[in-house]
Design a protein around this nucleic acid. Structure first.
Lengths: 235, 235
DNA sequence: TTAATAGTGTCTGTGAGACATTATGGT
DNA sequence: ACCATAATGTCTCACAGACACTATTAA
């Protein structure tokens, strides 16, 4: 049995202390069973006037789609595991993964005891590889995803959390996810926010809320039609 | 090595499926190293006009204090682990643990690879056992706790998260944590909110915000001094 | 000149904040 | 009668929302 423990220690569980330090009860950490810990990420983008979420082929079942995810490796930050899973499974460079919630329901994964730390990240459509699977989240009440039936695990719930989180961030700040490449016009910014929030916004009210948080570049958009607009960048 | 894996399976890791199911890469879950997962809880209460957090003796070092916490057991929900740790380490029946954040910094625990899922819960002072260690969080800027030096791990940061979370909940709803036993007067409710939020509140503004969310019992407090107040209970 | 869009002025309703006034109990 | 506290009326200010008007470009 001790040999077994040492096997695991060599496997990367014990990183800093080779002497098997004990807790307050004189037990080694390895005397306690440990869960598998995964990260799953709802990667959101805006395309075609709507908020979309990226799916990847579900590795377990041959058919079906799932959120990109991976098991966390020893010594790895959760956010780094997220970035790695996005890179390897979706070919995307994520930017700033944010934790949403730990899903811990027993039996949520039939393979065993698996906790999933749900994350959300946001990336411009242009940075996605061609042909990725995107499904819309805006055309369903309560952000529930019905277009793909039976997402595995808690993935539908993760998408709900993610959409709520991103929408609340886009309430008062100009493009906090950095979906727009500056400089941009206020119209472009407003249409982005309308896509994220799934509702139309008042033109002048939106301007008054956002302009104090922007800085004008002094340049002007090409007025192909109508009066050209001033260009801004984030403050 | 296979023997070693089966040992772990018997130890509770594999709950539902005895046939060692595999993932998309043909590997067993147990082929991946797994972290220890703990829960740590900032249990907040209001006493003596201020917001306090409960500490317990730090089991590792003989002296020093820490937030109550425990390792999560197989098949156990995180919230149940929180309730168990509060019961066993603090003698308190928690009510509704809420997740705050997963702390995952490598090296945060010198015993090895340990993730901590931080939680917050709220309990009335009267339900605490006599003589528990409480420290104030109100008298420090930014809710940082300086009264007890060098809390272990990320516990000071957990308290910051917890205080911010509870304060935001007490912004617009009457006693969402259930610290008051109904019926209560608006003055009692306001003084509770003042204690939680660490600032004084306008009497009439507070009434206008809270009264629509309360229902009057029709009863009247005993006016030991001045006009008696109406009694309310949550809607 | 007209169409189209950008940018700004202004009116109104709502609600927070602050203060003043009235109501109701005990002493 | 007086005091202490509860409850409510009201004034002001700030701001979101809505609408209208002016400005600037291309065709």
């Amino acid at each position: 049995m001790l040999h077994c423990l040492r096997k695991y220690a060599q496997n990367g569980v014990m990183t800093s202390s080779p002497s098997l330090p004990v807790d307050g009860f004189g037990k080694t950490l390895l005397d306690y069973p440990r869960p598998s810990v995964a990260v799953d990420t709802a990667l959101l983008t805006v395309h075609d006037g709507g908020l979309k979420v990226l799916l990847v082929p579900h590795p377990g079942a041959g058919l079906g789609w799932a959120l990109p995810g991976t098991f966390v490796r020893p010594g790895e930050r959760l956010a780094d595991a997220v970035l790695r899973s996005l890179r390897e499974k979706a070919g995307v460079s994520g930017r700033d993964p944010q934790q949403l919630h730990v899903f811990d329901e027993p039996g949520r994964d039939e393979r065993g005891w698996v906790l999933s730390v749900a994350h959300v990240d946001v990336v411009p459509f242009g940075e996605l590889p061609a042909g990725v699977k995107l499904i819309s989240v805006t055309e369903f009440a309560g952000a529930r995803v019905a277009q793909v039936r039976e997402l595995p695990y808690d993935h539908a719930q993760i998408i709900d959390y993610a959409v709520a989180q991103v929408r609340s961030q886009y309430l008062s700040a100009p493009d906090p996810g950095g979906l727009l490449t500056p400089p941009f016009t206020l119209k472009e910014l407003r249409e982005l926010h309308e896509a994220v929030r799934g509702e139309s916004l008042q033109r002048d009210t939106f301007r008054r809320a956002m302009e104090p948080q922007l800085v004008a570049t002094g340049e002007i958009s090409d007025g192909t039609k109508g009066r050209p607009a001033a260009l801004f960048m984030p403050y």
